[in-house]
C-alpha cells in the first residue's frame, strides 16, 4: 500500500488507462498547460502531449458535444468539468445525446465516455457553485453515476469507468482532492455498481456516498462513545444502486439513516427509503431517516452555510431518532 492524495489517485487512474489505450484522451478547461484547475492532471501534458491532453475554451456545451461525437466514432474521451455546476451548460449533450445514443440508434452507436469533475459545495461559493448532482444524473437511464469517497475507491472506480462502454458521470469534490488515503500498489479495478461496507456495526445503518460520508464517519465515532454501533455503507455508485448490500445491513440493524449532500426532494435518500419500505418492510423497527442539504439554494454566509449542510450533530440526532433516543 502507499499513501496518495485523492487527486493523485485520479491522475494515476487516467494515466494508466492512457498508457494502456491510445484512444483514451483528456479534455477540459485548464487540464493541460495549467496542469488542472485543481491539479488533478498535473504532469499529464508532459507525458502524453497536446494531442491527448487538450485545453478547451470555456464552452462546456461545445466541447462536451465534440467529446460525445468522438466517443461515437471510436475514441474514449475523459471530459473534465471544472465543477459539475458548469456542466449544466452541457447537460443537453450528456442527457439528450450520450445517455440515449445506444437506444435511439437501435444499438448501432454507443458512447464510451467519462464526464468527471468536482461536485457539491466547496466552501463559501454561494448558490451557483455549490450544487450536488448525484440524484439529477441518477435519474437518467443510459448513464451510470459514480460517487467515490476516498482515494482508493476513486482510482479503482475511475479505471473501471474509463474501460466501461457506457457513458459515466463521475462525481468528485474540490474538498476531497487533497484528502490522503492508502491505495494498493500496482494495478487494480473496482467494479461499478457495488457498495462497500466501510464500517461494521449492529445498531443503525448509515447509508451515504461521496464526500459527505466523512460526516457520517465522524458521527459514527461520536456515537460509539455512547455505545451506539453504526454500520456505514458507502454506495460508491448511485446508478445503479447496490440495494442488496443495504437491505442485508437493515436485516441486521433494523434501522437506517441516509446522509446525502443534495436536496431532499426526489433524492437518493428518498429512493433508498422507498426501496426499504418496499423490500425490507418487515425488518424496519423505525422509519428511515435522512440528513440532506437544506431545501434551499446554498447561501454564502458561513452561518447559513453551516446551517444548511449535513453535519455530525444532525446525523447523530437522526441516528438517535431511529432508536427512539434523545
Amino acid at each position: 500500500m502507499k499513501t496518495v492524495q485523492f487527486r493523485e489517485a485520479l491522475r494515476e487512474a487516467m494515466s494508466e488507462e492512457m498508457r494502456r489505450d491510445e484512444n483514451v484522451f483528456l479534455m477540459g478547461e485548464e487540464v493541460a498547460e495549467y496542469n488542472g484547475a485543481y491539479k488533478v492532471s498535473q504532469g499529464m501534458l508532459d507525458e502524453f502531449g497536446d494531442k491527448r491532453v487538450i485545453d478547451t475554451p470555456i464552452a462546456e456545451l461545445g466541447f462536451t458535444g465534440i467529446a460525445v461525437g468522438a466517443s461515437m466514432n471510436g475514441l474514449r474521451p475523459i471530459v473534465e468539468f471544472m465543477t459539475w455546476n458548469f456542466a449544466i451548460l452541457a447537460a443537453d449533450q450528456i442527457i439528450n445525446s450520450a445517455a440515449k445514443m445506444l437506444q435511439m440508434s437501435g444499438g448501432q452507436y454507443h458512447c464510451p465516455i467519462v464526464f468527471r469533475g468536482g461536485n457539491g459545495q466547496a466552501g463559501q461559493l454561494a448558490a451557483t457553485h455549490s450544487q450536488a448532482f448525484e440524484s439529477f444524473y441518477a435519474h437518467v437511464p443510459g448513464l451510470k453515476v459514480v460517487t467515490p469517497s476516498n482515494p482508493a475507491d476513486a482510482k479503482g472506480l475511475l479505471k473501471s469507468a474509463i474501460r466501461d462502454e457506457d457513458p459515466i458521470v463521475f462525481l468528485e469534490s474540490e474538498k476531497m482532492y487533497g484528502d490522503k488515503g492508502e491505495i494498493p500498489e500496482g494495478e487494480y479495478l473496482i467494479p461499478i455498481g457495488l457498495a462497500d461496507v466501510k464500517r461494521k456495526g449492529k445498531d443503525v445503518t448509515i447509508v451515504s456516498f461521496g464526500k459527505i460520508i466523512k460526516e457520517a464517519h465522524k458521527a459514527a465515532d461520536e456515537l460509539k462513545k455512547e455505545g451506539i454501533e453504526c454500520e456505514v455503507i458507502d454506495l460508491r455508485t448511485v446508478r445503479p444502486i447496490d440495494y442488496g448490500t443495504v437491505v442485508e445491513s437493515i436485516k441486521k440493524t433494523n434501522r437506517c439513516v441516509v446522509v446525502e449532500e443534495s436536496w431532499p426532494l426526489a433524492s437518493i435518500s428518498s429512493e433508498i427509503a422507498y426501496h426499504l419500505q418496499r423490500y425490507a418492510f418487515d425488518y424496519l423497527d423505525a422509519p428511515v431517516m435522512r440528513v440532506t442539504q437544506s431545501d434551499t439554494p446554498f447561501p454564502f454566509s458561513p452561518t447559513l452555510m453551516e446551517e444548511g449542510l449535513p453535519n455530525v450533530n444532525r446525523i447523530i440526532k437522526a441516528v438517535k431518532a431511529t432508536m427512539y433516543k434523545n
Binding site: 467529446a67 461525437g69 468522438a70 461515437m72 466514432n73 443537453d92 439528450n96 445525446s97 440508434s105 452507436y109
Partner: peptide, 19 residues
C-alpha cells in the same frame, strides 16, 4: 443520425471529425 435536439449534432459532428 438523425438528431432531435436542434443544433445538438453540430458539436457531435465536429467530434466525429475530431476522432
Amino acid at each position: 443520425g438523425g438528431h432531435g435536439i436542434v443544433g445538438a449534432q453540430i458539436p457531435m459532428g465536429a467530434g466525429v471529425a475530431f476522432a
